[in-house]
Amino acid sequence: MISVGLFNYWACMVLMMIGLYTAIARPNLIKKLIGLSIFQVSVFLLYISIGKVSGGTAPILAEGIVVYSNPLPHVLILTAIVVGIATLSLGLALVVRIGEAYDTIEEDKIIEQDLVND
């Protein structure tokens, strides 16, 4: 039997940092939003990993089962996923409007155009 130990949390942190790097280092606005999505999924994974109880089952009451995983993180993350897609689409809508106004969605080009206009 292999013990996972803290591996789940470390994997979440690594994913989180990949997402953060994509969001801050890539100039493309869609790529930034994809980075934020990766970041988001890593946070979901972190919460769900904390809620796991070894030997437990899914929190749906049934005869003969004593150990359930913690239902509270599940509730929080379940709603957060749907809120996440709603806010992601708001961000994408903003990207579309920026693309129409500036004719590019690269951050550095947008800043250049702003400087020229000032």
Binding site: A86, S89, A93
Partner: peptide, 20 residues
């Protein structure tokens, strides 16, 4: 609400035409 918002968002993206 969730179904209506998702459909509205999709219609928003699908109904928009590329300007260029």
């Amino acid at each position: 609400t969730v179904a209506a918002v998702m459909i509205a968002i999709f219609f928003g993206f699908a109904g928009r035409r590329r300007l260029r």
